[in-house]
Design a protein around this nucleic acid. Structure first.
Lengths: 351, 351
DNA sequence: GGGTCCTTTTTGATCGATCCAATGGCTGAG
DNA sequence: CTCAGCCATTGGATCGATCAAAAAGGACCC
């Protein structure tokens, strides 16, 4: 009998059970392997056959069974992300996760979320997932000082990408991070262009990677403009009251603007300015960091340096996919510039 | 030869490749089926055999291959969650997702995150995932008026649970929601116990399910105390400036406290009170809703009704797991009471 | 016409677990 | 001592796809 399509009546696209490759093959009058080729290596098929198979696939609403494919190819096409209990320092993950998922989806991958254990058993969840072949790769976030995960994964040759550079130790693997220094520097640039000459910085106590990074950007920008920096810097833990007290000396020293390492610290500046009878954005300009939900609500609206979380997610996934397709390629690191969101707290120098 | 353990030397727990059931079986001197039984139906084994198999499993660091198991059992043990682009109304999902993952993990399930398409193709991503047997069930959040997803899933007999009740249409399936009315009611209770007698409400324009719910709780609590409600209610869109204008009539009418449907609206109250020369929490008490990150930062700290997102996640997963183990059971709905977080804006009545 | 070479398609085995039915060992009744 | 009856354990097939290699189909040249 000459090969030809099976004349069985069309099946509704979402048939009751599941459509298998064998059913599609029978309908298109070819073998299952040919159906497989039509999907994975279409260039091997004669155009005419390809068309016939594709039509059968569409008509029957066929979708390859993920588990069957995984079993044979030894790849789950799933990327693990360990979500940690929401802590004080943790960023809001929504936008990041959405960008990750979206980019992964486009490449046929999906995100697998798991509750990451912490402390001693931190690596156990990663090991478990790998052992059962549950994921092909990992995305790390919330990287810490002395984080063991990067080295552990690298040793085992598991592809991964981190959101956050390594601030200490040997730099391992691919990562994406936000260029905090560029953020504070751009805030300074803007303030200078508004006529400010005495620009203070309110940061966290030295020792935190990202905090020191943000301080450094401020200092660098000042220097670039030949402005003096000593004595214009203050430190505080991330608390409004403490920040208000800490920034007072800067105000006394006559700064016309303050760049803060966080919106919480910036809010402390607001309070200190108000205490001395001033109005933020009028007597003293203030710029925060992170563009948290507080910023637009304040009066005056708080200008703030916004982390491009969507871009970070997209970029991270791009690096990860590249790593998976070429495990031997040299590590790639991406620093994304944050954007200054201008609001009323960023006024022209009054003096 | 009598059955007995294979005397091959112990393998390091994380052997190079993957350990299969056959390898464990050989080492324990049993068949693969017996290893399977040891893991899935241990009560079928003689205690002595069970012990032997378990030891072999531990020593070799064996973990069942997820794809292989899925293929045979026709269950992925994965639960889908469609993450949407972060919009204005969307809650912060971190805590919810962590609670979901954690509870799922404990039952051997994991969360699969996918970028949910919106609009016309909204259901396409759900259908795709089901077609490839990628998930066994779904968790829905961000449920909307006329959301088609519940009915669509119900029709197909796919287990799901929603975060958010159905405000219109036929109520379908299991859900968990936060009892907004109970939240505003508890705020009123607290205010009454502090001596307040004229308690206003600043809400959103009528028509939003949760907004009307919150208004209703305020009204109910007032009535329970024999307090008058008419004229003490105002409406505004979720914007600080608009809220400040909208609440002014209430202040003029002499309210000593305002319960707001959101922290943004509450912030509008702060501003209106300050404009009239007063101090929030002193002249007029204010209570917000959602306990967003703004609340603790304000001065005075904003008392707010906090949604128990962790509990919602845990409860939702509990319902979903129950539904999966008994698809025929009657739908279960859970309303969780939010907690009032007391801060300085909630002062005693001054008058 | 027949052989060579290249492309397209088919056949058969395989991934690692679980399902189902059948086997072997053991106990206790007859 | 035999045999039914029960228990623990085994063997073989199977889920749905892909891999590897063999077979079929054509074009082309001598």
């Amino acid at each position: 009998m000459p090969p030809g399509p099976d004349p069985s009546p069309p099946v509704p696209a979402q048939g009751s059970g599941s459509v298998t490759m064998a059913m599609v093959a029978r309908r298109a009058g070819v073998s299952t392997q040919t159906v497989s080729n039509a999907l994975n290596t279409p260039e091997l098929l004669r155009p005419e056959t390809l068309e016939r198979v594709r039509r059968a696939v569409d008509e029957m609403g066929y979708r390859p069974h993920r588990a069957a494919r995984s079993l044979r190819t030894r790849a789950s096409r799933l990327i693990g992300f360990g979500i940690e209990p929401a802590g004080p320092g943790n960023l809001v993950l929504d936008r990041f996760l959405h960008a990750l998922s979206e980019t992964a989806d486009a490449a046929g991958y999906r995100l697998l979320l798991f509750a990451a254990a912490s402390g001693q058993r931190e690596l156990a969840s990663y090991e478990e997932l790998l052992g059962e072949h549950g994921v092909d790769a990992f995305v790390l976030s919330n990287t810490r000082h002395g984080d063991p995960r990067q080295a552990w994964l690298e040793e085992r040759g598991i592809p991964f990408v981190a959101f956050g550079r390594m601030w200490s130790g040997k730099d391992v693997g691919d990562w994406v991070d936000v260029d905090g220094a560029a953020g504070t520097a751009s805030a300074v640039e803007r303030l200078v262009s508004e006529g400010h000459g005495r620009i203070g910085f309110l940061g966290w106590p030295a020792g935190s990677g990202s905090g020191d990074d943000r301080a450094e950007g401020w200092q660098r920008a000042l220097r670039a403009h030949g402005l003096e920096a000593p004595g214009l810097r203050a430190e505080s833990v991330d608390d409004v009251g403490a920040a208000a007290r800490a920034v007072q000396p800067l105000l006394d020293a006559g700064v016309t603007a303050v760049v803060a390492a966080s919106d919480t610290l910036a809010l402390g500046c607001y309070r200190a300015v108000a205490n001395t009878g001033g109005v933020p954005g009028r007597e003293v300009s203030v710029v925060g960091f992170d563009d948290s939900s507080v910023a637009p609500l304040l009066s005056p609206g708080l200008a703030s340096v916004a982390q491009p979380l969507g871009d970070v997610g997209r970029e991270a996934m791009r690096l990860l996919l590249a790593r998976m397709s070429d495990p031997a390629k040299p590590p790639e690191r991406v620093l994304l510039p944050p954007a200054l969101v201008v609001r009323a707290s960023l006024g022209a120098a009054s003096g």
